[in-house]
Design a protein around this nucleic acid. Sequence first.
DNA 1: GCATACGCAACTAATAAAGTTACATTTAGC
DNA 2: GCTAAATGTAACTTTATTAGTTGCGTATGC
Lengths: 134, 134
Amino acid sequence: MKRNSRLSLALHTLSHMAEEPNRVRTSADIADHAGTNPVVVRRVLGRLREAGLLTSEKGHAGGWRLARSPQQITLADVYLALNERMIATGPDYEVPSCSVEHALFRRVTTVLTEVEASLVQKLSETPISAISGT
Amino acid sequence: MKRNSRLSLALHTLSHMAEEPNRVRTSADIADHAGTNPVVVRRVLGRLREAGLLTSEKGHAGGWRLARSPQQITLADVYLALNERMIATGPDYEVPSCSVEHALFRRVTTVLTEVEASLVQKLSETPISAISGT
DNA sequence: GCATACGCAACTAATAAAGTTACATTTAGC
DNA sequence: GCTAAATGTAACTTTATTAGTTGCGTATGC
């Protein structure tokens, strides 16, 4: 794995799960499939659980499962759950003091925010069931 | 500066240039405004030049200038010039051997490619002149 | 010829992410 | 209860990317 790996891992895993929603999978199984390791899987899937897309159960016979039907989970849900905004200029760029600069800065930020919203809108049109074979 | 800095730097610089298209700017000037240094500026703007968005001239009184009018340069041009695909699963994820896996893999890739195309389409609707004050 | 610009290569430093190890906690089944 | 198997999480190491820096070659206008 390399870059964009969280989104990639999340999508592949969810698509798989969408094919057999009732099957419980352990992070070790998922890691094997994805060619990574269980802790990394738990880190990524943990975010999806926080967002209400997955549930996990501890202990013997525990593991991961979809929290709702594959038709009700869209790519936007996954994208937002990972909380990795691809576009927005973060709040780290030094905010300019000059007012002209500041106005320019705000216009750039505004446009990028709109673009991101449009991206999320587009993502929300595709449920993960459309990616799985079912 | 931190992340997304190339896109950020490019957009801010181009927006500035859009306000006074005839003015030639040195990488040192631009670096001062952006709070970075001239070499970094040349690296980023170099990509925009390769994409035909900017021209640069060496020597005394040299510097950077828009290659065409601000109305004719869109955010998609900038995004594509930087060649940083934000979405696509690169060709680095190990390609699965199992045919079922392979089919799933291809569907994920296809969907992400479509999403990226839609993003570029959206970006192409905004020229940099819309961000500058003019 | 000299000052001033870009072009580029090479190196360092900072950052983020994946990978790894270790251990606590929870749960099912005996 | 004991044990095996699973998640949860913290800490650390490794790796990859990027910004930053330095130095020097080359081009250009005065």
